[in-house]
Structures are given as C-alpha cells and as structure tokens.
C-alpha cells in the first residue's frame, strides 16, 4: 500500500466543531496509521466523473484504521462545503495518504515543543498533542491558540482537558464572559510572554492563515529563534 493509492473510508461520525467546521471520523480498512502533522488528499467524484481533490490535515495519529479530519468551510470552496454540510455517517469518502514528511512531530524527538495555531490551523497540532499523550512523552509541549471567538475553537474540550500540554488561548474578536484580557491579535509581546523562549531551543510548529503565520514566524525570529527550528504551514491566499 503506497500513500499514492486511493483508499475508501466509511464515515463513522461527523461532529460540529465550530459553526463553520466539522470533524469527520472514517473507518478505513488497510490504513496503516500516520505521523502527527501529516495530511491526506480527499477526492470527490460527481455523477459525470468530474473529480475535485483538496488536502486536509489529519487530527488523528498513530496506528489503527480510524482516521479523523477536521474541515473548515470556505464560503466559495468546492470541496469543504460538501464535507461540512453534506457528508454524513455511512457515506464513503475517497482519500490517499498519509502525505508530507516535514511538518511532523514524532515522540522520539526530545526538544521542547512549541505549537502555535490560528483557527483551523490547530488540526495538525492537535495530532501532535495526541501523539505526545499517547506516547506518555515527558517533553514539554505548549500550545498558543488564536481564535476569533469562543465558538470558533476546534476540539475545545479536548484541548482544555489535555494534561500533557500547556494551553494559552487568545481571542481576537470576542472573549468569553469573565476573560481577563480584551480581544486582540497575537503580538510579539504576547508570544514572548506565553511561549517557550528561544533559549530553550524548542521545536516550533506554526499553522494557520498566511497572514497569521507570516506575523508569528517573523516575531519568533525577532525573539531569537533559529529560523531552521520553525516549521510552518500556511493556508489561504494573500
């Protein structure tokens, strides 16, 4: 079985994550597991044979034949509206993977880990948190997670409950009742005060919309992080 071969999964569940996003769990006979941070190509086929393919990060990791994606709806998108609004338990979905060997974290890595996510960019980072938990890793792992509002958090309960990761939430538009901070963007000062410092030589993973990743990665370099220690994944146009 090569990552280039198309597999067929059966949807086990589709769960609303935010008003615009769902997580989708698939049962996939023949799946050999994935490394945290990898993605898959999803292929949809119309009755006339027309196909559309897009890449989605995996929230799941490790062995087993269950695969979890999380998909944010893009208004003028072609594939995400189908996955978020149409797909339901029992449907079949074609995909291939796991793909990508760069933006990945493995439990045998010993450097502290700093994860920084914007919006749906948390999905591959959640896979890293799950891998960290599953391995019982003692490597320090922190997540700085920027979302617009409380309802825009992906995997909110799981992230709050995750004991192996030190979570900092940042709300850019709307904060929960009683939150001690006003809404605001992730700034260099905020990164300096809430993330693992460059002196600890962390492995840094940044995933989110292009503008978010550009700003965060530049701030990290300004704060003394070695550019080669910062892995990025961007999405959306500029």
């Amino acid at each position: 079985m090569s990552p280039r071969d198309w597999l067929v999964g059966t949807v086990v569940s589709a769960t609303q994550q935010t008003p615009n996003a769902k997580s989708i769990v698939l049962d996939v006979p023949g799946w050999h597991g994935s490394t945290a941070g990898q993605h898959v190509d999803v292929r949809l086929t119309a009755p006339d044979g027309y196909t559309a393919v897009r890449a989605y990060s995996l929230a799941s990791t490790g062995p087993g034949q269950q695969v979890e994606l999380a998909v944010d709806l893009i208004d003028d998108g072609e594939v995400s509206p189908y996955l978020v609004e149409e797909l339901r338990a029992g449907d079949q979905l074609e995909f291939r993977g796991p793909l990508g060997r760069w933006f990945v974290w493995k439990p045998e890595q010993t450097a502290p880990v700093q994860l920084i996510a914007g919006g749906s960019g948390v999905v591959p980072l959640l896979a890293m948190i799950r891998a960290h938990t599953a391995a019982g890793s003692s490597v320090p792992m922190r997540l700085l997670y920027s979302v617009r509002s409380p309802s825009d958090r992906f995997f909110a309960d799981e992230l709050v409950a995750a004991s192996g990761v030190d979570l900092t939430l940042v709300y850019t538009r709307e904060v929960p009742d009683g939150w001690p901070m006003a809404p605001g963007r992730v700034t260099k000062e905020l990164i300096a005060s809430t993330t693992t410092p460059a002196t600890a030589n962390p492995a840094v993973f940044v995933c989110g919309p292009t503008g978010f990743v550009e700003a965060v990665a530049s701030a990290l370099v300004d704060l003394g992080h070695d550019p080669v220690s910062i892995k990025t994944e961007r999405f959306g146009g500029s």
Binding site: W6, L44, T45, A46, P47, T51, A52, E78, D91, L93
Partner: peptide
C-alpha cells in the same frame, strides 16, 4: 476503483 460522492456535483 472510483466511487461517486453522494450529493456532490462540483462547480459549474
């Protein structure tokens, strides 16, 4: 082994 995606029509 292409399968059809129930309810998917794609863009014009």
């Amino acid at each position: 082994m292409a399968i059809f995606s129930r309810g998917f029509t794609g863009r014009p």
